[in-house]
Each structure stands twice: as C-alpha cells, then as structure tokens.
Write a protein that binds this DNA or RNA. Structure first.
Lengths: 187, 187, 187, 187
DNA sequence: GATGAATGAGGCTTCATTCAT
DNA sequence: GATGAATGAAGCCTCATTCAT
C-alpha cells in the first residue's frame, strides 16, 4: 500500500480517537507500519500532516454533498438532496465528520486550508439564495440558514450513529431531514 | 481572590483558546497568578481539573436554561423560553459554550461527570414528551428533538457571536428561534 | 500521645518500608496524625529527623546488647550473651535492625551521629581482645571478629524472621549462635 | 562506545554512591554522555533500568562464584573455592557487591528478577546438602548455612575494602575464610 | 505549640524532529 | 525512498519547606 496514504488514514483514525495533540507521530507511524522518519519524509511537520488531511477530507465532503444535486428539478428537491447526501456520507464516514468538526476552528489548520475548505460549500449559499428569491424558503439571513442546516445535520448524524443500524436509525434520519426542511421552508 | 476559583476561570479561558492538551498546567498557574504546586494542591491531576470545570459549567448551563420556564403558561412558551434562555446564556458565556462542546464527548471527562452533566437537562426531555402528548409538537423521537434543538441553538449562537453586537445579531437570534420552532411544531 | 514520638515511630516504620528518599515528609506527618508544619517544628529538616532516629535506635541497640553481659562469669558466656541479646532484640525489633543496616553507610546520617552510634559497641571490641589474650578466641584481627560476628548475627536474624514463629525459628537461632561461636573459638 | 552499556555502568556507579532514589535519571544520562531521551529509549522506565542492572550483576556474580568449583576434588575444597571466588570477585567489584546488597530486598526490583537472581546460587544449596550428607559439614538447616556464609563473606569483603591493599588485607581475607569454614565444618 | 495553604525547584517521562546509514 | 537511534525541550507532577493564622 502507498505509505503516504497509510499515514493519512491512520492519522485520521487516531486523531478522531485521541485528538491531534493526544496522538504522537510515533504512534501514527507505528500503526501505519512505517518508520518514524518516513512520516517526516512525506509531511515536513505534524501540522502539515493535519493540514493535508483537512484539505482532503473537506474536499471529499464537498464533492459528496453536491452529488446529483444539479440534476434535481426543484429547489426543494435540491436542498433535500444535499441533506440526504450529507446524512449518507456522514453515516458512512463518521471519523471524517468528527475530524472536520474537531478541526473546524482549530489553530492547527492553516487559514488557507480553512478558506479552501469553505469554498467547497459555496454552492449551498447560492442554493439558499435561489430558494429565498423564489419564495420557497423563509427570508432568513442566508448565513443563518447555512449554519443551522449544517449544525442540525451534524446533530442528526451523531444521534443516528449512536442508534443501532436498523429501522430506528432510518426513522431518525427521515425525521431529521423533515425537521430541517420544516425549519426553513416558507408557509 | 480565591485561588481555586482563579485557577478554574483561567483554565476555562485557556482550554477554549488552545484545547485541553494544548494548554500546559504551568501556563494555567502562571496566568492565574499562583504557583505550580498550588494548582495540584486543589486538583490532584490535570484531568481532575477539567472534570471539576466540566461539572461546574454543565450545572450552571442547566440552571440557566431552566430559569423561569415553569412560570410559562403553555408548552410553546416554555420551549421558546428554554431557547431564548440558551441563546442569552450562550451569548454571554461564549467560552463556556465552547468548552462544553469541546468536551462533550471527550475521554478526559469522567463518565460520572458526563452523567451528572446530562442530568441537568432531563427536564427538557419531559418538556418534549409533554408537547408530543398534547399534540403541539411533531411526533418525532424525543431524543432527536433534543439533539437537533441543541445543535441548532449552538449553531445560532456561534453565528451570532461572529456578528457584531447590534440589530443584526438580534435578528439572527430571532430567526434562529423561529427556525427551531418551525422545525418542531405540529401543523 | 507525644507528637514528637509519634513522628519518630511513624518515620521508622515508613523508612524501612520505603526508604528514606522514598517517604515524603507529608506521608510521615499524615500517618503520624499531625500537620505538615508540625514535623518541621520538631525537626528542622528531614535529615535532622533521620539523624535523631539513627541516634535513638543505635543507642537502644547498644544498651540491649550489653544487658546482663557484665554479670556473666566467663568470656565465652559473655560473648554468647551478647549474641543471644542481639538475636532476641533483632527478632523483637525487625524494623530497627533494618533501619540500622539501611543507614549504616548512608550520607544522610551525620558523621557525629555515626561516631556516636559506634561508641555503643566499643565494649565488644574490648571483649574480643580479652578473649584473644585469654586464649579463648582465635587470634584474628579484632575488627574482623566484630565485622563477621555482626554480619552473621544479622544474617541469622533476617532468616529467622522469614521463618514462622515456632520451633523452627528457635532452632535457627540456636544453630546460628553455634556457627558464630565455632567460627571464633580457639581449638 | 555502546550507549546502552555506558548507561548501565554509569547507573551502577551512581546507584551505589547515592542510592536509587537519590540519583536522578538526568544525572545518569549526563554522566554517561548521552541525551536525556536516550536513557528512556533503552529503558522504558527508571525501574526497568534498575531491573536490568540487577539481573546482569546477579548473573555475573553467580558465574564468578562457580568458577572452577566443579574441578575441585573434595567438598571442603569446593566450598573454600566458592569462598575465595566470592572474596576475589567482591574485592574486584565493590560497586557490584554494594549494589546487590542494596537491592537484595528492594521493591524496585521485580519479583521475576529476584527469582532469576536467586537461581544462579542454587548450586550452593546442593553443595551444602552434599556436605551434610557426607558428614563434612554440621547438620544445620541448609538455608541457614547459605545465609550466614553469604553474610559473613560480605562482612569480610566490606572490612577488607576499608583496609589498604597490602598484606593486611590478605590476612583479613584468609582469616575470614577460616572463620566461615570453622563455623560450618563438622568436628 | 499547631495548623495547612502556598511555594517553586527538580524529578520522571514524552515526543517532534533530525540525520547517518 | 526508508530506517530507527538519538536528541533535548517541555510537560505533569512531587515534595521539602515556609509562614500567616
């Protein structure tokens, strides 16, 4: 396996389990099956490792959220599609979700990485603005819409992950989406 | 000033700024104006310090949320009161909010502290159940209602804090509450 | 109870269990049932505490060894009496024996305390010299006689202490005394 | 030079000079000419260092005592050979002798290390039993024979080391061996 | 005499990073 | 590219001692 990839995926797992400052680089390299020095060949510093990881995960998440959205006919469908994309991706990648939240405001992630990360979600702001203009969505501050939608989705995911695998989880995901949609839809 | 209190409040500030593992005990004691040993006289370990802090903050938050709730006439009023209590407290105590979120699932907080923390919010679950029974609130899984309400509130607070002080913030808080209520309420 | 005495006896117990450097003064005061500061009222420093203890134990041991010796008729009887005194005292005061051995060459005990300690055993050197002069004891270097006798006695005691309480221990003590006497007696 | 060896020999010297708890690991590494971290690279903890040292020294001592013993014709010669081996080794390795005595009953040495250490001296017990069976040695408890012989040897060594280098020391060693043999031998 | 909160130097250990092989 | 022995700054915590009450 590619050593760089091994380091990145091991770091993701360990960072979410133990935090950035709680996971020694030596542990990452050991669990990734490489030598101490190898990690520092691929990433000049520990911070660079986290920065790379952050960019990769954010980009993957942005792509996942957008999947199939443009093909949806209406604003409502598009927003619901984003929501279910988010839930599905979050359920399948709990570590990545947790990692993103953990480092969303972290000083260990460079400003450029933060900005780059944000850029993957600009299309959502456009979507909200379109919805407001069309009168489908309440005329709230669009940033608020984004914030509460994101926060609600992550709340739903975290509860769903704590809740077995079966029909119960499915209901939570459906009700969660309904909650969000009812919160923003006009009338 | 009481040294134990000085240590706790300094720790709160530094933990939210730099994370638990990112703030040396030496920094805490220095900024609190006490000697290294004094911190360990009041808190046997760094973990015990964080645990005490967590209990104190959770308890304060629980009390704040509940303030005046019982005096409200209807379920809707009570829930709205909890919401505005939460927003007001969060705006006034941003560090405490951040601290609670940071350590909500942290292994550095003991299980008993987590449980004790949760207990301050049980009344909310009762409130939701009452609402469902009375047909005022949608018949969702009550844990979901709690989770998304909490997540939404925290999203609103974090945005409001980024948004000046004046009328704009006020609108965000109002709209945030509306979002939550619309997400929850029946019909 | 007298606090000074309580501190001394607690210190003796803890020093033999955990060594001098391994027992904090705070532990001594806690187990002695006095406050931290009290220990330092009676003993200016930790070293002074150990020094006092050393003097007290050495003096007690010297007195114990000498008990009834002058009343014995012959050199052999006197030497045997010293030996059985030593064994009896050692069995009854294992902590004190251990303490003396532990600090026999310790830099934490002052030179004057060492010299004072030695002085309690000078009568033994005289006894050996008398024995040699009378032709009862082999003409060995008297310091050697003292050294091996002391070493042998302590070896016997340590084994006896590991050996139950009954008849077995008694036999070990008797055989130990025989060993010593055969080692030094002439012909 | 091998760093692991440098650490071990420096530790031996310092431990005997100042005791285990009295010698900081920082002093060991400094005097051994290595960095702080290097000590902990080779020995996970300070206790592991002492444990390793104990095993090494005990094993070396056991080998030294046994040297040439099997080639001796009689029990008496064999026992005398063990005795003179012990004295010679002790005189040449005073720090190692002192170290072994210091840690003979120390809680800092693991039980397995203690047991392993003992195993190197089992041949001596066999020797004593043979002597008793052949009627050459007094019928004492064999454990007692071992204990007093060991204690006496160490007493002789400690006195000899205090006594110049010349003929005087030689006499002490000879007389010491005689003392032991007379203490043990039958008739 | 007695207390115990307070101090800060110092001890053990970890860990990001380097570099010779 | 890859390794892992080596480094030393820095972190957590202990503990002898002081002093105001």
């Amino acid at each position: 396996m590619d050593k760089r990839e091994a380091i990145l995926s091991t770091a993701l797992r360990l960072f979410t389990d133990r935090g950035f400052q709680g996971t020694p680089t030596s542990l990452i390299s050991r669990e990734a099956g490489v030598a101490t020095g190898t990690l520092f060949f691929y990433f000049k510093t520990k911070e660079e490792l986290i920065d790379s990881l952050y960019r990769a995960v954010k980009s993957e998440a942005g792509t996942a959220l957008r999947d199939g959205v443009d093909a949806e006919p209406s604003i409502e469908d598009r927003i619901r599609r984003v929501g279910s994309n988010a839930l599905a991706w979050g359920i399948k990648n709990p570590a990545k979700i947790q990692f993103m939240e953990q480092f969303a405001h972290s000083p260990f992630v460079s400003t450029t990485a933060h900005d780059e990360g944000m850029s993957h979600f600009h299309f959502l702001l456009d979507l909200m603005n379109d919805g407001i203009r069309q009168g489908v969505i309440r005329d709230y501050d669009p940033r608020l819409l984004l914030h509460v939608m994101a926060a609600s989705l992550s709340g739903v995911i975290s509860l769903a992950l704590k809740t077995g695998n079966g029909r119960e989880r499915k209901r939570i995901l459906e009700q969660g989406l309904e909650y969000i949609w009812n919160g923003i839809r006009k009338n």
